Amino acid sequence: MVKEFLAKIKNLLKKLRIPKPWDSIIIFILNLLISIPVFIILHQNLIDPEWPLHIDRVLIFITLVTLIQLILTVLKKILIICIGFYVLALLFGSLFGDYGFRSVYEEYQAMVYTMAYDPNPQGVILSKLLPFPNKSKIIDAVDYNNPQVRNYAVGAATKYFRDIKGFQKERRMIQCFSVFKDIRNRWIYVNDPHNAEYIATADESLQHFAGDCDDHAILMAACIRAVGGTPRIIHTGGHLYPEMLVGDKADLEIANYLIKEQLFADESRGHEVHYHVDEYGQVWLNLDYTARYPGGPFMSEEILGALTFN
């Protein structure tokens, strides 16, 4: 009985065996299909030592490909089964889950782009900062629950970038970038009254899309918050400007690619994406009216206070 069973298994393996040289070609293709998403996960979770030319990542990828190639060579008798499971897993993720063929392609594309074109970090902003000036007035002015603010924000969030395919997980980020673009295109700088600090509410600034830096920061923060984003306002002494939370370094890679290649390619051409990192490792992009794209150059680097809305 045992001999008959073993004979059946042997015959099955013979049927599954792929003739040379196709077995080596298929093993290598399968190797790449497995190595790319595994490498993306490693790249996003391992600390970046910032070696020149990303040599550490190159060595990791070469080691990973070599290791998987050896494993697949040992398992080449059941190669078809391995391919079937891999394709089915990605197919299931594409149809019913959050991670499928498109996700692998998008994350790989963003990762490679970021490795070639690093965004520009601006250091860490600590939570122990100076008291925020006019804090209570600014909090009240960021009236994101106001119907006028909410209605405008919804319209602005869907005004641009509606033809961008994929990137479902980044939909909120893309909509916030659309809000930034609409306010940025319409904003006109107008000074406060002489020797007075006038703080306009967000719904008030919607009437003319005009005011000084604190009025812009309040309106931007309120609209970003109204569509589900997490904004904060930075105080630098003589200037206030808004920033938007994009997430961790992995999210920054996607944001960097979207800004540079998909959404603000003309505005950001030849320029870096600037950001701050807080003490929790969260990444914040500059949304100042002086920036032509999210993550544009900072007007001032002297950070005195941060006011977060979440």
Rank of each mutant, 00 (worst) to 15 (best):
G296W: 02
L252I: 01
D278N: 14
E261N: 11
L252F: 04
A265G: 00
F264E: 06
E253A: 13
H276L: 08
L258E: 01
L285G: 07
G295C: 12
I234E: 11
Y241I: 00
M244C: 09
H276P: 01
N286V: 00
F298W: 14
L240W: 11
L240N: 13
H239T: 05
G296S: 14
H235T: 00
Y275H: 02
V277C: 12
T290E: 14
V277P: 02
F298Q: 12
P297G: 04
G281Y: 09
H274Q: 13
V283I: 13
G237L: 05
M244H: 06
Y280W: 06
Q282S: 15
P297N: 07
W284S: 04
V246L: 05
G296I: 01
G296H: 05
T236D: 10
G281C: 06
E267T: 02
I259Y: 01
D248G: 13
Y275E: 09
Y293W: 14
E279H: 07
V246A: 03
G237M: 06
V273A: 04
V277M: 15
W284N: 12
D278A: 05
M299Y: 15
V246G: 07
E261C: 10
Y257S: 10
Q262C: 14
M299R: 15
I259R: 08
L285A: 09
A291L: 08
Q262M: 14
G238Q: 05
F264P: 07
I234G: 06
Q282K: 15
T236I: 07
P297S: 09
E253F: 06
G270P: 02
K260G: 08
R292T: 10
P297E: 13
L240I: 00
S300V: 07
G237K: 07
H239C: 05
T236H: 04
L263T: 14
D266A: 14
L263K: 03
D266T: 12
P294N: 12
E279C: 04
H271K: 15
H239D: 11
D248W: 03
H274R: 06
Q262L: 08
L252V: 03
R292N: 14
I254P: 02
D248S: 13
F298C: 03
Y275L: 04
